[in-house]
Design a protein around this nucleic acid. Sequence first.
DNA 1: TCCTTGTTGCGACAAGTTCGCAACGGCATA
DNA 2: TATGCCGTTGCGAACTTGTCGCAACAAGGA
Lengths: 160, 160
Amino acid sequence: MTSEGAHSSELLERAATALRSRGLPLTLQRRAILERFLGCTDHPAADTLHADVAAQMPALSRATVYRTLETLVELGLAVRIAHPGSEQRYDPRTDLHHHLVCDRCGAVRDHEATELAALTLPRRSRDFVARSYSVQFRGLCAACARTTDRRRPASRRNGA
Amino acid sequence: MTSEGAHSSELLERAATALRSRGLPLTLQRRAILERFLGCTDHPAADTLHADVAAQMPALSRATVYRTLETLVELGLAVRIAHPGSEQRYDPRTDLHHHLVCDRCGAVRDHEATELAALTLPRRSRDFVARSYSVQFRGLCAACARTTDRRRPASRRNGA
DNA sequence: TCCTTGTTGCGACAAGTTCGCAACGGCATA
DNA sequence: TATGCCGTTGCGAACTTGTCGCAACAAGGA
């Protein structure tokens, strides 16, 4: 799990405030999950995050991680992201940004691109009203590009 | 399931050729699945497709549909598409196009946009080599926009 | 201390997907 | 026609991801 560390305590403070403003306490479990999650740039799945946090807090239950992430989405502190693969992934960044998705292992990384900051939304029509967008670039991450065997994705469940 | 019908036999012929070139026979099951799938514009999930084809071929097993779709992806005749939700969806269109994704019900529709036909791919770097991209617009489809209750997505398992 | 409110862990469950295996079918060869 | 080979199929079990109900628990206020 990639964790930046920088600004992490500041982000935690913001999250704590958002929770409190809704009357939700910052429990030990939530704190541990937030500390791990907020600095992440690799868009963990709920179960990955659980495995990670449970290393320090073995009693932590999966349901708690799922519930906490759901709460964060509701508070606007995280977004669910879509990528080809079966797991739901979460992103602590809620501002406009884009993703690099590895076709083989399913890794998702952020991608900054100023030229993509103002794409034209589809014209408002009777059929669909667009509110936001994100661009997904597909290709190969460094690790997978190095591997010679191209027949199978590194992780079975995340293909292209 | 939305099926266009037009060009369907032509697409089927192309698919049969691609299968044959790999030494794979066009079995009755594969033919039935392809006939349903190739004209689809609504990006069916494997299970949806199974239910649909099984109406005419009751003995068809779910595993066969999953395996056939997997084969089509490997042959470049279909792509898995990213959308928020837990099901894997498939798209018979492999050319550059974009998607409109309803935040509430999870419906995915194609979106054509000439101005998005030539976005700049991220610079080739040591970290990631991009090969393609697609833009995902999120918002509300007509049916969901009409519904007044905005608290819950129409389908529970498809969030934002 | 008691009550209320919300959180947590646990285990069961559901849906989607994959896997192993035996049976089957087509094709080439003898 | 018989045989062997090889890929496909259906079946059902198993696995993964995510949700739910429930009892225990913790914190805060009366």
